[in-house]
Write a protein that binds this DNA or RNA. Structure first.
Lengths: 347, 347
DNA sequence: TTGTACGCGTTATCAC
DNA sequence: GTGATAACGCGTACAA
């Protein structure tokens, strides 16, 4: 049922000119007499002609398309990054292939191949899987196509990165807890992610540097990372701990989901942030602002992360051979209501 | 720096066969002798050859690509729909162009054109703008390319739709509030969306049918629709109302964001769901499960909405000329903790 | 079973 | 200013 699409030839015929002329009118790259130009434009209008980007891409070897690999689409952290990418490339008249890797390495590499087949001009990978980086997959990919990685394992890796300074972010958050008088600080993380590992190592170092005892029992681990299950698991875990007397007065959670889960545990047990447990999250996603009380958290400026990645890939595409850069972004502690000064008498 | 990509010709040369043979090995659509097949596969491997989908798409006039138009990417409602679409088309070896229209009609039509230029095989539009449907834009689009619309204005519109039965969903929710003994029910909506209009008309009819007075002052309106601002506005609006004595014991909110905002107002004023205000949301997004107390809400099965849309567009692509269908999906009332039986004595 | 040659819809190159 | 024609990389009718 779908009508056949007009081609440049149809336009040329109708306007009684050559396809070359039509092409020139379209691309405005060579002078065309005003009269003929008008004829062509009328023909384009009448046929509602749209250029075929496949044909154009084939000969120009560029498609005005960026591929994005993301571990999740429902995670508010990632969608904010994607929005940042989107905003920038839209301005530059690019369109994006968004691929949800579900955080699985095999999907991630498969989809990168798929993007290559589709001749995207560049690939941005958000939180790429550590094993793919370690195995050299991304270094190889970057040889074939402009590639920018956002966060993820990057020690000694020869790739373009846009990174959050999670070390500093974690450090500042912990320092704030100390400043509030807390000495017994628990740490809540998910099982598997480079970012959790970073944060845990900062936590350990921080405790040691401040002469605080590291008690393994206060390093809490939940299964998943960024979804409802995380919230539930965190809630149940904290409920169990709080019931039997937590043994700590503050909690650093590796992301807002975990922090919200902990907060829910406090609420459900009839306890309070004020008297019982200060909680600090990470990411400053929207859920940190809709929880009650609102979460103190570490802002990662995800939107800017996306914008910079897009900007960087544009540079690489344009200048072809540029050196490898790692761009580090500051984080910012956002103080809200889930952290309170430790009262004397609390242990 | 990026190395040149191998073509089918390179493979043919290396394997000392014609490109036709290579093509046959790739597509497995004609018999090839095992020996030559092996030679070809080795060559493919050695050159790490990847077919160029642009060239393939050009000649076959299909790209294994679906375009998705969505009003937002950070909205958990839409991302769940997209996940559903994604899951289905992934199985069918399609890839998707995801376009964020930001809920603006001009972006929406521009991006639809963009997708056409890129020769996608079909377009799925989530919550399309009413004005574009009314103006005939989508009916025209559907003539050019397989198109499926998810939700949105559809009265007498000749397009393929996958729809939630929001009328029934709203009706069931209101009925439940009545069953709990509530007689004074307020209605909270956003300014502009077809779905709010539907719900409001059901609300009015329901009140009338049940002999309850419709008091215009109990129809509350916030500006935006699906973000943090919505939560904040809803919270402030409800705080104002609750302070001066609401005049209603239950609230139907058009989506979970608004409901959470209302819930926060109740919490901040030191009131409770139990004694002061029952709240019912809509959508059953993840935030309805992380709020405290958890929200009673109407589940729309967004994932299934996406899957069905993808399934339908696959059908249309395959069978070319099929009749127009509107598929209506049931909703389901999810009873949680934000709705309570009205106590005697409350007005 | 395999190969030759044409066509898909563009842009680039060269000639006029 | 304008037009003919090659080229992009692939699939396929036709020939062998």
């Amino acid at each position: 049922m779908t009508e056949k699409r007009a081609t440049i030839q149809d336009v040329a015929n109708l306007a009684k000119v050559s396809i070359t002329t039509v092409s020139r009118v379209l691309n405005k790259n060579y002078p065309v007499k005003d009269a003929t130009k008008k004829k062509v434009e009328e023909a384009i209008e009448r046929l509602s002609y749209k250029p075929n980007m496949l044909a154009r891409g084939l000969i120009q070897n560029k498609t005005q398309t960026i591929g994005i690999l993301t571990p999740s689409i429902e995670n508010l952290f990632f969608s904010e990054v994607i929005k940042g990418i989107d905003a920038y490339i839209k301005k530059e008249r690019y369109t994006s292939f968004l691929c949800n890797t579900e955080g699985k390495a095999n999907y991630e590499s498969l989809m990168a191949d798929n993007l290559l087949e589709r001749s995207v001009d560049g690939i941005i990978s958000i939180d790429p899987q550590t094993e793919l980086i370690r195995s050299g997959f991304y270094e190889a990919l970057a040889k074939k196509i402009p590639t920018v990685l956002i966060n993820g394992y990057n020690k000694g890796v020869q790739c373009n990165f846009i990174l959050n300074d999670q070390e500093v972010g974690t450090y500042e958050a912990l320092k704030y807890l100390i400043k509030l008088g807390h000495r017994t600080i628990a740490f809540l993380r998910g099982k598997r992610s480079h970012s959790y590992d970073i944060k845990e190592s900062v936590y350990r170092k921080f405790m040691k540097d401040n002469g605080l005892e590291i008690i393994e029992d206060r390093i809490l681990v939940v299964n998943s990372g960024n979804d409802l299950e995380t919230v539930q698991q965190s809630r149940e875990l904290l409920k169990k701990r709080l019931k039997k007397g937590a043994g700590f007065t503050a909690l650093f959670a590796c992301n807002d989901w975990m922090a919200v889960g902990a907060l829910n545990a406090v609420n459900r047990l009839g306890l309070s942030v004020k008297n019982d447990l200060s909680i600090i999250g990470f990411d400053n996603t929207i859920i940190s602002q809709i929880s009650e009380p609102q979460l103190t958290t570490v802002d990662q400026n995800m939107n800017r992360l996306g914008v910079l990645a897009a900007k960087r890939i544009k540079e690489i595409i344009k200048e072809k051979d540029t050196e490898i850069k790692k761009i580090l972004l500051d984080t910012r502690l956002v103080i809200r209501k889930s952290t309170r000064e430790l009262k004397q008498g609390n242990k």
